[in-house]
Design a protein around this nucleic acid. Structure first.
Lengths: 200, 200
DNA sequence: ACCTGAACACCGTTCAAGT
DNA sequence: ACCTGAACACCGTTCAAGT
């Protein structure tokens, strides 16, 4: 086949936006600058991304979903801190970003916050959350075996990390999520390090 | 005497902005609308508030600073860790618990999550959050002066703590909140200690 | 020092018009 | 269906000019 650089207009736009964001993470990604960089008219951009929010959500989601390996805990070659951060990022990735994150919290809200949840729904939620905490606790146990974990109750540490992930995933659904991107990894790092043995 | 409405131009601007915000909490508070409502030129507005950010920050701060009880940070008799935990609990207490916490998140959801992120609401939200982080950062600066703070960027540490508080206040509105309450203080303690100088 | 309003360089969105 | 670019109604900031 070949069709060498036959990028669709949509793809060209996304590449242009990602490039601009790479050059300047604080870029506003305005219609005209993105369109110009993509070599496309603003009308054409609007055809694929009817609103500016749609464009930004799409490109941000693409960046988030770049590299997520599938069992970060097993990669014993890397730093314990790095591994734990990768695990937490895995949890975060399930919530998604932009409109997907909003969908996630919309569903949570409708079932558990909008009106008093049924006993069944409450039970399901608690079970799900327990599973989540348990998953984190298993990761922490691995680190404990390696002597990398700080002393303390693993369950308390796991709940703490769960809360941090909850906070971050919530913030992904709230305004300003794009600007917070740069701080997300720092927050995860701070959280991870606080349950790990302090470097001496 | 009387001098009936002898408000200074600066005050008139702030009143106009606050009024607009009262009429519509998602108002963008643009230069022209605020200036028009205040019966003042945009140049005059700019004279007192050189930047739009300055205007918004000032009016938000005015609303925010209405009810701030005593600052736990001033109680130098207690442990730095205890003091920071008390400050974070202060933030948490504003959300309340149980039905009040659910009301809180219902409101947040309706404005920011239910309908696609309106660019109008975004500005107000970001300003409010910035103020919140700023408040935490001020507490951390105090601790830094005492040599109690761990090295690192204060803004990153403040954002981390803000995320933890967000996560906890969210969890207060979700099922299982009564059981989680017991872990809350542990989570706050873990978060606080992670930005404080490790005890030696 | 305070205040004016025009001017500038942007912005997101819409839309008649082309292919 | 895809694409164009002008037009519209905004935006924040600057600034010569007045008092």
């Amino acid at each position: 086949m070949r069709e060498p650089a036959k990028h669709s207009t949509r793809t060209k736009i996304l590449i242009a936006a990602a490039t601009l964001l790479g050059e300047d993470p604080t870029s506003r990604l305005s219609v005209r600058t993105v369109a110009a960089r993509a070599g496309v008219s603003v009308g054409s951009l609007r055809h694929f991304f009817p609103t500016q929010q749609a464009l930004i959500d799409t490109v941000i989601a693409g960046i988030y979903d770049l590299d997520i390996p599938d069992d970060p805990m097993q990669d014993t070659t890397s730093d314990p801190s790095d591994r734990l951060v990768a695990c937490l990022q895995l949890l975060l990735s399930q919530v998604g970003t932009g409109e997907r994150a909003r969908d996630h919290w919309r569903a949570i809200h409708d079932v558990y916050v909008a009106s008093p949840p049924s006993a069944d729904a409450t039970h399901a939620f608690v079970a799900l959350e327990r599973l989540n905490v348990h998953r984190i606790a298993r990761w922490l146990s691995t680190m404990r075996d390696e002597g990398a974990l700080a002393p303390g109750d693993v369950d308390v540490q796991a709940r703490f990390l769960s809360t941090v992930v909850n906070g971050l995933s919530l913030e992904r659904a709230l305004p300003g999520d794009r600007e917070r991107l740069a701080f997300e990894v720092h927050t995860l790092r701070t959280a991870a390090d606080s349950v790990l043995q302090r470097r001496t």
